[in-house]
């Protein structure tokens, strides 16, 4: 057969056959990644008896949104999401504002000891959060902040700062110094240079850091569990964890709907911004 003239078609077939194992491998990989999520979405439309009697691969009998309604009305999902929003977005805003200003002061401005301060911030990336929970709990208790969402906002802001300061300093380092020096020669004062020259220059980086912090804070469980002692204060993660108890662990439909809502939120964000998210999260890891 090899004596026959090798047509482009033959060559294509042969390449295809040789690469077939790789294709099959990739197909299996994608199935492993995607299947649990497909199962979750299908499950969020199923009724209780379908979970109990139908096989796992069956499609839901109807596509009614009853489970979602039940998750919001009976499960209090709406309250949890609202709490998360109230805790996450102010923290993100503060992290970005304070972190960028600090990054600017540490990288663009020239003064003695800035290297040491940057190292102090960096140390905060390594320390396990468990080290700060108990003293913070005492502080919030003494300040009568327990019972509000303030402990979450304050703790998220502080724990998000080290990585943000470090990343912003890195981004400012990439900006040519001449730009800032030119601005000073033009007579701009330092705050104007920060706000009107520095900020716009790192706009993209700011967006990346915002995404990274959003995922960290939105997905956080440890801090949310520590500082939210009542039902009314639970964030979506802490609330979802207790979804099971509330329904005695057997009301599958609303539970799946609750998980699906939680997943779909991040899914939509990822759908549009996946390249930025991937870049941001992996850049954030070089911190170690």
């Amino acid at each position: 057969m090899t004596t026959l003239a090798v047509t482009p078609f033959h060559r294509r077939v042969r390449t295809f056959v040789r690469r077939l194992p790789v294709f099959i491998g990739v197909a299996i990989l994608l199935a492993i990644v995607a299947y649990p999520l497909i199962w979750l979405l299908l499950g969020s439309f199923k009724q209780q008896d379908e979970f109990l009697s139908e096989p796992f691969w069956s499609l839901p009998r109807s596509w009614s949104l009853d489970n979602y309604v039940e998750a919001f009305v009976g499960g209090g999902l709406g309250k949890y999401i609202l709490n998360s929003v109230i805790a996450v977005f102010p923290s993100m805003f503060l992290i970005l504002l304070l972190g960028t200003a600090a990054g600017f002061a540490l990288e663009v401005m020239v003064w003695k000891g800035r290297g040491a301060v940057l190292l102090v911030f960096l140390a905060g990336v390594m320390i396990p959060l468990q080290m700060i929970l108990l003293p913070l709990f005492t502080i919030y208790f003494k300040l009568h902040l327990t019972g509000t969402l303030w402990p979450l906002i304050i703790t998220y802001t502080a724990t998000g700062l080290p990585l943000t300061v470090f990343m912003m300093a890195t981004f400012f380092r990439a900006v040519p110094r001449e730009i800032f020096e030119a601005a000073t020669l033009d007579g701009a004062n330092i705050y104007r240079i920060f706000w009107s020259v520095g900020m716009p220059l790192v706009r993209n980086a700011l967006f990346t850091v915002a995404l990274v912090q959003f995922f960290f804070i939105w997905n956080d469980l440890l801090i949310a569990l520590t500082f939210t002692n009542s039902q009314d204060l639970r964030t979506i993660q802490a609330g979802l964890l207790n979804f099971t108890g509330q329904y005695g662990a057997v009301d599958y439909g609303p539970m799946f709907a609750g998980i699906a809502v939680n997943v779909v939120g991040t899914l939509v964000l990822y759908l549009f911004l996946n390249q930025k998210v991937m870049k941001g999260l992996t850049a954030g890891s070089v911190k170690g």
């Binding site: 002061a105 401005m109 301060v117 905060g124 080290m131 003293p135 703790t155 700062l161 000073t184 705050y191």
Partner: peptide, 27 residues
């Protein structure tokens, strides 16, 4: 101008203060 100590304090101060009070002191 780029080494103005007051400006360093204004820009770095808030972040350093929050970080110190909520992370360093508790540690």
């Amino acid at each position: 101008l780029l080494g103005n100590p007051r400006a360093v304090l204004v820009l770095l101060g808030p972040a350093l203060l929050v970080y110190s009070l909520v992370m360093l002191v508790p540690i």
